[in-house]
Amino acid sequence: MRFYILLSLNALTVASLYFLVASGFSLIFGLLRTVNMAHGAFYLLGAYVGYDIASYTGSWLLGLVGAAVAVALVGLAMHLTLLRTLGGDELRQALVTIGFAIVVGDLLLAHYGGITYQFTPPEILYGTTPMPVIRGYPTIRLVVIGSALLVGLGLWLLIHRTKVGMLIRAGVDDRDILSAMGFNVQRVLLLVFALGAGLAGLAGVIGGSALSISPGEDARFLLSSLVVVIIGGMGSLAGAALGALLIGFAEQFGLAFIPNYATLLTFLLMVAVLAVRPQGLLGRG
């Protein structure tokens, strides 16, 4: 019993992390129709920048906020200087983001080297929270789950309860009509891009605290984000949540019971979804 509860909590933790990264990825895709291949680089950049801020100021929280802001700004800059100039040609945009990701990844490797970094979160987050049946669970992992819930709720409120959210939803459905009705779509695009990038940066700090930061994490989280949105459905927030949950559970239960094939399980899931419902479980056809 204890084992299964632990497994489920682990799966929830991993799913939360995937959701944090993939929600921004999905939002950006929904509106821009661009597969932002630099999303993993945003994650890693956020982790390293957050680490520097946190070690300089001694405050983990400042690192968290600083990373989100810094990466949002980088996202803004990238959108303004690289993507917008390509005039909506999706394939070229995707290619440019790949190039951007490679350059950022190598610059980070050159600056931070190949060693592994780990955040030192406040003492209160680093210990173990006592719980019934399973005795205790690492607090930092509960923080991961909690922040995913908060971010998810925040995004839902933003999208479904505000005017900006209405614009975003309308933009996902039909960008051209929205533009024809006199709304400044470019501004919405910019906002969404910065938001998505900032979320990736935030996730970098949270992921770097619960797990660790090292070169290669960018590719890992880009891949997981891709799988999550393919399973859940591109551009759908609920889809990202569902996709992340499925992947998280598949990965952790796979690792416990058939460790040799755990990675395979994730992709089998993806293949199955693609075969039955190519637009993703909650995607629109």
Binding site: L6, R220, A256, P259
Partner: peptide, 17 residues
């Protein structure tokens, strides 16, 4: 013996086992 894929970052489920 637990054999895990290279690049596994979350070992807690293996540890629980």
């Amino acid at each position: 013996k637990n054999w895990v894929p290279v690049g596994t970052k979350d070992f807690t489920s293996v540890i629980a086992k």
